[in-house]
């Protein structure tokens, strides 16, 4: 299976592990991740105002590429996924925006709104299947107690993201269980870490991050797992007593893909 891959800016810099292990795991699962050539930064956040056009064009370019190649568009970073999916939704529901975006791009191939967008987790669930992954696990993470951290961007707004029940999601937990580890429930798994507020108010970011890792810790977790580089940064920067790792790293580890091949 081939997919078009949008890595995003952070995965090329501060979150290279997230990218590297996503690629290695995909290889182990028989998925070819073709990086979209000349992709541009998604902008990190979706600007919800309906008259905001220019900031959304990079997403539309990526969507158009996937449509052209008749392949699913896959992202790993929560933020990229959120921005691209929300942009696609606006493109398909707001005709004035669609017209403006098409005019701006003025490209030979006009995006028709038909790209299929998958977060890497959704790709694992819907295109590979957790049962299939379970079969391919060579080093099960037995005994590990994992607190999955969704944050906000993967699940919300639910009317657009439609990944899972936004208040009682199971996709991340199911993956962890497929890898042989125990998934620990804690109530703050879908609350905000503070996000970009780290630049505006370090105190607020600290307060939010602390409430997340304290909740995970008191639930008995030994590790927090995330898909978002900013979540990981905030939790670690604000002294999480638990290690915070990317989900792709755990996946690669369980699949036995972490150490082999050249890094």
């Amino acid at each position: 299976m081939k997919v078009r891959y949008f890595p995003g800016c952070t995965l090329k810099n501060k979150a290279q592990d997230l990218d590297l292990f996503a690629r290695k795991s995909a290889l182990a699962l028989g998925i070819e991740m073709e990086e979209i050539p000349m992709w541009q930064c998604c902008g990190g956040v979706f600007v919800s105002a309906n008259d905001e056009v220019a900031t959304k064009l990079s997403s539309i370019r990526a969507l158009s590429d996937a449509e052209e190649h008749h392949s699913p568009l896959v992202t790993v970073c929560s933020a990229c996924h959120n921005v691209i999916k929300q942009t696609n939704h606006q493109f398909n529901t707001d005709s004035a925006f669609r017209q403006k975006a098409v005019n701006y791009l003025a490209s030979d191939t006009v995006y028709q709104g038909g790209a299929e967008i998958y977060h890497y987790l959704e790709m694992l669930r819907d295109l590979v299947g957790f049962d299939e992954i379970k079969k391919k696990v060579v080093k099960p993470l037995t005994g590990r107690k994992i607190a999955v951290y969704y944050g906000c961007l993967l699940l919300r707004p639910n009317s657009v993201m439609k990944m899972d029940d936004p208040e009682n999601p199971q996709i991340f937990e199911s993956l962890i269980r497929a890898l042989g580890a125990e998934s620990v429930y804690y109530p703050m798994r879908n609350e905000c870490c503070g996000g970009y507020i780290a630049l505006e108010s370090k105190e607020l970011a600290e307060k939010k991050s602390r409430s997340v890792y304290e909740s995970a810790k008191s639930a008995g977790a030994d590790t927090i797992v995330t898909a978002c580089p900013l979540c990981r940064y905030n939790l670690l920067k604000n002294n999480s007593p638990l290690p915070v790792v990317y989900f792709t790293e755990l996946l690669a580890e369980a699949l036995g893909a972490k150490e082999d091949s050249n890094e």
Binding site: C9, L199, Y233
Partner: peptide, 19 residues
Amino acid sequence: SILDDDMPQQAIVSAFRKY
């Protein structure tokens, strides 16, 4: 003055978009 070595690019572009 806000930046540190670990801060992901995503944080900076997001804050710029918002502010």
